[in-house]
Design a protein around this nucleic acid. Structure first.
Length: 363
DNA sequence: AAAGACTTCAACCGCGCACAG
DNA sequence: TCTGTGCGCGGTTGAAGTCTT
C-alpha cells in the first residue's frame, strides 16, 4: 500500500472531536474577517494569530473547519425538527436521486446534507420500511398524496435546483444561528432573550424572524434577563473580563484581541462549567447547553451586528498579513443603532436582514 | 435506582472530481 | 498528459442522550 493520498493534516498536530464554544467563536470571527476561500489555509492563518500562552489557537484541520461551518455555524443553517413537508420532500427526492444527500439538501433551504442523511437513516428509512415491504394500497396512496402535494415539488421539476444556500428574501428567512425553540429556551446564557423569542414566535417559529424587530418596546423584550454572561458571578472575574469589551458612545464594541487570555479564558470557563456550577448561578443553565453559548453571547448579549449599509464585512480585506504571533489584531465588530434614540445601555439583537453575506461560495 | 439497549447526530474518513501548473 | 492540491460528497463511527427493563 503506502501510496495513498497525503493526509490533509497531521493528526498529531490538529485537535479532533467536538468543538468548544471558544473554537466556534474563533472560527466564525476568522471567517467573518477573512472569508473561507481556502479551508485548508484557514487554520494556518488562524494559528499564528491565535496562538497564545493560554489558548492553543484554532488547531483544527481545514476540513474540520469547513464541516463545522457548513453543518453548524453558518448563519442560514436551519435547526430543529424537520416538518412533515420537509420529510415528504426528502422521501420523494431520495426516491428520485438515491443517496445524493447534497442534491437533496439543495432543495431544502437551510438543511445540510449531513442532517438530511441523519434524518433519513434514523427516521425516514424506518418509517418507510413497513410500507415498502408489506404496504397496503391505502398506505401507498397516502404517501403519494403527501409527496405530490409538496409545494416544493415544482422546484424539482423545473430544472433549476435551489442551491439551498442563498436563502432568498422571499423564502422563509432563517435566523442567525437558528435553533429550535425548545432548545433555545433551555440555553443557559441568555434565557431571558430566548424565552421572549419563544413567547413572541407563537405558531410558526420558522416562518418569521423573531429577532427582526423594529421598535424600542420590542427591543426591550429582548434584553437579556438574569442570569446573563454580563452579570455572571462564577469563578472568573467577569466584570474585569467584560471590561475588555469596550462599548463606545456610538454603540460599537471591540471584541478583545485574540491573545487576551482573560477574555478567552472566560469563554472557555463558561463551556467547561459543570451542571452544579451552572445551577449555582441560579439560572437556566442546562448541563448540556454549553454549545452555542458564544452565539448568544455575541449576537444577543453583546448585540453584535454587521453594518448593512456600509457592507462592513465584505469591506474587510480578505487577508491581512500576520507578522508574528504577537502581532494579532483585535477582531472588530460594529453594532448599528436601531434608531435615533439609541440607548447605549440597550442591548440590540441582530436581525437577519442586517447580515450582508459576502462570500460567493454558496452562501 | 441501576444497567443495558437503543437512538441520535456531530464529526471523521477516504474517495472522486476539478483545476492549476 | 501528468501530478499535486483542494473541495465536496457519501459512508461510517462513537459519544452522549434517552428509553426500557
Amino acid at each position: 500500500m503506502g501510496r495513498g493520498r497525503k493526509p490533509c493534516c497531521d493528526k498529531n498536530e490538529v485537535k479532533r472531536g467536538p468543538w468548544s464554544s471558544s473554537e466556534d467563536l474563533k472560527l466564525i470571527t476568522f471567517i467573518q474577517r477573512y472569508g473561507h476561500d481556502n479551508w485548508r489555509a484557514l487554520p494556518k492563518i488562524a494559528v499564528p494569530t491565535l496562538l497564545c500562552l493560554y489558548c492553543s489557537g484554532l488547531q483544527r484541520c481545514g476540513k474540520s473547519c469547513r464541516l463545522r461551518w457548513i453543518n453548524y455555524l453558518r448563519p442560514d443553517v436551519k435547526r430543529g425538527s424537520f416538518t412533515e413537508e420537509e420529510e415528504a420532500t426528502i422521501i420523494r427526492l431520495h426516491g428520485a436521486l438515491g443517496n445524493k444527500w447534497a442534491k437533496i439538501a439543495s432543495h431544502l433551504p437551510g438543511r445540510t446534507d449531513n442532517e438530511i442523511k441523519n434524518v433519513w437513516n434514523t427516521h425516514l428509512k424506518k418509517k418507510l420500511q413497513p410500507k415498502t415491504s408489506g404496504s397496503s394500497d391505502e398506505e401507498l396512496k397516502q404517501e403519494s398524496t403527501i409527496t405530490s402535494s409538496s409545494p416544493s415539488s415544482s422546484s424539482v421539476s423545473d430544472g433549476t435546483p435551489n442551491t439551498g444556500n442563498s436563502a432568498t428574501a422571499s423564502e422563509s428567512k432563517p435566523l442567525p444561528m437558528q435553533v429550535d425553540s425548545e432548545k433555545q429556551v433551555s440555553m443557559g446564557i441568555n434565557g431571558g432573550i430566548t424565552e421572549a423569542i419563544k413567547e413572541s414566535s407563537s405558531a410558526s417559529t420558522l416562518s418569521q424572524d423573531p429577532l427582526n424587530i423594529s421598535n424600542s418596546s420590542e427591543l426591550n423584550m429582548y434584553r437579556p434577563e438574569e442570569p446573563s454572561v454580563l452579570n455572571y458571578m462564577g469563578p472568573y472575574d467577569v466584570n474585569n473580563t467584560l471590561a475588555d469589551v469596550d462599548e463606545k458612545p456610538n454603540g460599537e464594541f471591540d471584541i478583545p484581541s485574540l491573545d487576551d487570555n482573560d477574555f478567552w479564558g472566560f469563554m472557555d470557563s463558561i463551556e467547561s462549567m459543570n451542571s452544579t456550577e451552572r445551577s449555582n448561578l441560579g439560572g437556566d443553565y442546562g448541563a448540556q447547553e454549553a454549545d452555542n453559548n458564544w452565539v448568544n453571547f455575541l449576537w444577543n448579549d453583546l448585540g453584535l451586528e454587521a453594518k448593512e449599509e456600509q457592507n462592513l464585512v465584505p469591506s474587510l480585506p480578505k487577508q491581512e498579513p500576520v507578522e508574528s504571533a504577537t502581532d494579532s489584531k483585535p477582531i472588530h465588530f460594529e453594532t448599528v443603532a436601531k434608531s435615533e434614540g439609541h440607548d447605549p445601555n440597550m442591548l440590540y439583537p441582530p436581525t437577519w436582514s442586517s447580515w450582508s453575506w459576502p462570500y460567493n461560495s454558496g452562501f
